[in-house]
Nucleic acid binder design. Structure first.
Lengths: 144, 144
DNA sequence: CCTCCGCTGAAAACCACTTTCAAATGAGTT
DNA sequence: AACTCATTTGAAAGTGGTTTTCAGCGGAGG
């Protein structure tokens, strides 16, 4: 029955195993990150966090996100090629990005995943991860 | 029989229509770009170009690539999230990128394209372009 | 061959990170 | 509770690739 998958547990275990400390800042930042349900820019998360503890700076948020990446709790993405976005690790999904309003729709299609694997196998390529993004115009923006 | 699709023609038309000039530098840079068959970094193209005319600088190559992008003759890509790569516009293809050696394999699969369209139609999303990249380990790197 | 305005190259500015460093703080030890 | 000391923190400085600025150059129509 053990083996909790609770993100906070995962983080705490990672910290302990690496001789790292449990600090108030990390707790706040991770808490806010996990609470959110969208793709977050560093600055956005920083703003959230500053509402709770204004003294926390960009760098600490940045480092905490790197930490979350390292223990597998977050993924970093680069869409429009501006700033990085971070999302909670979890079920896999790909993205449809509206080039007008920037909104992001997530999608998932097992048939596509399967075909990917087929294509990779053909040249003996071992897939580690992938990125599939569709750019275009969302239904809202099509009606001006 | 009119309507040539020759890239040079496309470029020249674009220049004329925008009151832009035909210069030796642009000619050399575009010539070298079109001659190449791989994904080029700005610096790589710069090196090619300098063999012909050493006085040409980074900035001019950069601006010429932006120009090519604008007239639809080149696409800009950001893979590993380091430097931009530019590739000739043409047949569409996606990429498999080796995370060890950085080599890039192009692939294409109509079935995947079709499924993409299906997924987009489902939420009334109008596709303009897409990016599909598979990261992993190429066969060469799997044998150390 | 003149003149105008786009073009060029070097250098400076930008921007989003990423690293550095001295001071502050967890958390074992006494 | 006080001591110790490696880890953290925040501000500031550094990076690296790209983008803009600007003074002089040069294409091309008159």
């Amino acid at each position: 029955m053990a083996h909790t998958q609770d993100p906070m547990e995962v983080l705490n275990r990672y910290l302990d195993e690496h001789g790292m400390k449990h600090t108030r800042q990390r707790e706040i930042i991770v808490g806010e990150f996990l609470k959110s349900n969208k793709h977050l820019q560093i600055e956005e998360l920083l703003n959230q966090v500053k509402k709770i503890e204004p003294s926390i700076g960009y760098v600490t948020v940045y480092r905490t996100l790197m930490l979350l990446k390292e223990c597998g709790l977050a993924h970093q993405r680069h869409f429009g090629d501006g700033k990085s976005l971070f999302e909670k690790a979890g079920d896999h999904h790909d993205h449809m990005i509206c080039i007008k309003c920037g909104s992001i729709n997530e999608f998932e299609d097992d048939r596509i995943e399967k075909l990917q694997e087929q294509v990779a196998k053909r040249i003996n390529f071992k897939i580690v991860s992938h990125r599939h993004e569709i750019y275009g115009c969302c239904s809202r923006c099509q009606n001006e």
